[in-house]
Nucleic acid binder design. Sequence first.
DNA 1: GCTCTATTGACTGATGTGGTCAATAGCGTT
DNA 2: AACGCTATTGACCACATCAGTCAATAGAGC
Lengths: 207, 207
Amino acid sequence: MFSKFLNLDKEKQDRIINAAIKEFAQKGYSSASTNEIVKEAEISKGLLFHYFQNKKQLYLFLFDYCYELLADEFYKKINFSEEDFFKRIRHAVSIKMDLLSQYPDIFKFIEEAYFEDSPLIKIELGKRIKELTDINFGKIYQGIDLSKFREDVDVQKILKIITWTFEKLSEEELNKAKLSPGHEIDFQQLQIKAEEYFEVLTTCFYK
Amino acid sequence: MFSKFLNLDKEKQDRIINAAIKEFAQKGYSSASTNEIVKEAEISKGLLFHYFQNKKQLYLFLFDYCYELLADEFYKKINFSEEDFFKRIRHAVSIKMDLLSQYPDIFKFIEEAYFEDSPLIKIELGKRIKELTDINFGKIYQGIDLSKFREDVDVQKILKIITWTFEKLSEEELNKAKLSPGHEIDFQQLQIKAEEYFEVLTTCFYK
DNA sequence: GCTCTATTGACTGATGTGGTCAATAGCGTT
DNA sequence: AACGCTATTGACCACATCAGTCAATAGAGC
């Protein structure tokens, strides 16, 4: 299907993939322009359509690419044998932030895919999107040692509050980055803040 | 400036305003189509440009309109004499949810404005956007009685965790609503859940 | 110098854009 | 009924951009 494309040297593949992801991420499927993609990738219009049958096939190829890349990276790094919830969630958020900083456009691309409403995407991507959501929320809770938590309140709610805290902390830092000139996330400061909240949360929620 | 428009009967004004807000909210400034706006508002193309000099003026008018509407409604309802932080924040979130369910497109419109990067908007809307953010986070904390909180952790972080919890709870319910057939928020269930988290948070964070 | 594939970019017809403007509808006044 | 005046229309404009095509060319291997 895409064998012609996959036989290209890696550098050119990457140029095309990155350009296309960036464009789709910024504008969504229908508003994304193949003209912009070839300009950014520094290839000719004809070449893009030599490798990919049409815009739709390109988009689907990219979704598969992004999905596999994020899933692989996440599962490669997460440590499921860590039973302490705080450490687990802190680690998961940290991985997510790493990936986010490494592949910001890929995250945006996946995010945008949620909002696509052309029939194409709703049908063909529905299942995979659901799977990806589970990466964020499902498996993170498996095998957690709940015995450390205080017993006078619902532990499930505590888990949610903790998860939300780290998520909001990340979002806050991301929003700051958006307003800053270079759009760069200050990971060092985020790490420091995460540690501070980590301490507050353990103090208040552990026995 | 917009006197011609403001002399219209209210019903027609609303039709135009709502159509325009909806379109800008969905597509952002540059991709929004004046053709779509007049179609939705059921007026002719010419009439829109009879009332508003051009697309830009329309956008700026709408931002002012949305800004004032949200600010007015919020300050009208919030009770600054309530010194208990939990009650205050619970009330604020409840107001915000009310407004969100009443004016979903207006919230989306304002949200989109953050991401506009045409010079027009960055310059002319910058200050106002900042003010609106303060509505959400700044004044909510004024006059709070901090003496009730436990003293072994940073109280400012506790306030953030509480705020984030109620916000995430609202977001969660909103996302559920998006997936449901009628897009309706189950306010009763949200209220119940808020009470449950309220209890967990007071137990863990008050003395 | 031949073959064959990789690559180009000018081109197409369709669609959509913000904005204009001459024409008209409809109401208040005389 | 006839005038004036504003509210309202929608065909129209010049231009931009779109996804996709294809004849022409470049360049590598033999």
